[in-house]
Every structure is written in structure tokens, then in C-alpha cells.
Design a protein around this nucleic acid. Structure first.
Length: 207
DNA sequence: CGCTCGATATTCT
DNA sequence: GAATATCGAGCGA
């Protein structure tokens, strides 16, 4: 359909993370007997590598949890963390790398906003999907979605082509304690829908 | 506003 | 046992 093709994800994870900004995350869920389409524009991502990246889940090799990071690119890697939240990644890496993924941190809500508000039990648009845990909750993403093909138009979770913004900013990743100086977080700096990351951790470097 | 802290399950040491 | 790719309530200014 209109999905980003598999080849899009077969590149260096930081390039994929940067280029995902502006594309559209699309979610299809069942409510009773009908299907609802939820979507939003990706405005914030983070790249995670493997043996070169001590902050990556894949750093110590393959396990049950991170196996999607080692498999086919363009698939959903969902994990559970802090006992309460799910986070959505898409697997990506170039052909010289064993594993990698891009964490989708924030989207700007577009379609199915009232459904997201009900799932989040919150109305404020700026607080609806501005963070990886919030976004997963608003789109009803759980471990059941781990491994879904995000390049297929028939998948309940996919990424469609959007318009790439002209100005993207790279900053340090947030919420990690290792490799904190690497500028592998990418945001559409003009969007108010990026997460409110602790500013003290963010070193701005305009690209 | 901004900062601190507790929740809470899975993974890692 | 400790740490965790987080969030939101509660507090003080």
C-alpha cells in the first residue's frame, strides 16, 4: 500500500531514526464488531544499536526478549518496562550489523483521537501520545503486538509515508545511564508534541 | 512551573 | 538483589 518498504529499515539505525520523523504510525484495533483506524505523525525517535551501544537491549547478545532486534527489519519490537509500561520500536539495521531498532517516542495524534483519549483516560492532546509509554497506551499496544510486520498494509500496526519535515534536530537520548553523549534522539523541533524530556539531559545539536 | 519519588514486573548481575 | 529505552502524583516556590 502506502507503507514504507522493507529497504527503508535496512540502513544504519540512526539514519532510519532520523528519516522516520514526519511519517505516519497507523494502528488498527477492534472495538466491538468494528475496526478503528488510529494514527499520528512521528515527531520523536531514538536509535539503538548493538555491540557498539552499551545502552541497547541488544548489547549483550540475543535473548527471548530482544530477538526481534536480531530478525527481519521493519518489524515491531515491543517490550515491557518499569512494571507498568510498554514501548514500541521498529527493527532496523544495515546489513553489516547484527541487531538494531528505533524507539518511537512521540507522535502527533491525527486519526481516532477520541479513541486514544478513552484508552488513556486523558483529554489533553499535548499529553496524549508525547512519550513512549503514553503512545503505547493510547494505541493499545502490548506484547501481543511484538513481531508484527510494519511494512504491510494489512498489518494492525504499520508506518505509512508522510511528508518529511525540513528541520530535524538531533539530541542526546533520554532515560538511559550509558552512552549518554551520543546524539541519537531525533525530533521535529517545531512540533509541540515531542515528549517533555528532562532538559538537563538534552544537549542540542542542530543537523 | 519544576523537582523528587514510588509503582511494579521483567531482565540482568 | 539491582537496574530499568517511564509516568504521574505530590510537593514547594
Amino acid at each position: 500500500m502506502n507503507c514504507l518498504p522493507r529497504e527503508f529499515y535496512a540502513r544504519t539505525t540512526s539514519e532510519v531514526a532520523r528519516d522516520l520523523i514526519g511519517h505516519t504510525l497507523v494502528r488498527s484495533i477492534e472495538i466491538g464488531r468494528s475496526r478503528r483506524r488510529l494514527s499520528g505523525t512521528i515527531v520523536e525517535t531514538e536509535a539503538y544499536g548493538q555491540s557498539d551501544d552499551r545502552a541497547s537491549h541488544a548489547f549483550r547478545g540475543q535473548s527471548i526478549r530482544n530477538s526481534v532486534m536480531f530478525g527481519e527489519v521493519g518489524r515491531a519490537y515491543v517490550y515491557f518496562t518499569y512494571g507498568t509500561h510498554f514501548c514500541l520500536n521498529v527493527s532496523a539495521r544495515n546489513d553489516r550489523t547484527e541487531a538494531g531498532a528505533v524507539l518511537i517516542r512521540s507522535i502527533k495524534p491525527i486519526e481516532g483521537i477520541e479513541v486514544m483519549q478513552a484508552l488513556r483516560v486523558k483529554d489533553d492532546l499535548l499529553d496524549l501520545t508525547s512519550g513512549p509509554g503514553k503512545l503505547a497506551s493510547a494505541l493499545k499496544i502490548t506484547l501481543k503486538d511484538n513481531g508484527l510486520d510494519m511494512t504491510s498494509g494489512s498489518s494492525p500496526l504499520m508506518i505509512e509515508k508522510g511528508s518529511h519535515p525540513c528541520k530535524i534536530t538531533a539530541t542526546a537520548r533520554v532515560g538511559i545511564t550509558k552512552e549518554t553523549t551520543r546524539a541519537w534522539r531525533f525530533i521535529d523541533a517545531s512540533s509541540p508534541f515531542v515528549s517533555k524530556a528532562r532538559l538537563s539531559l538534552v544537549r542540542i545539536r542542530t543537523k
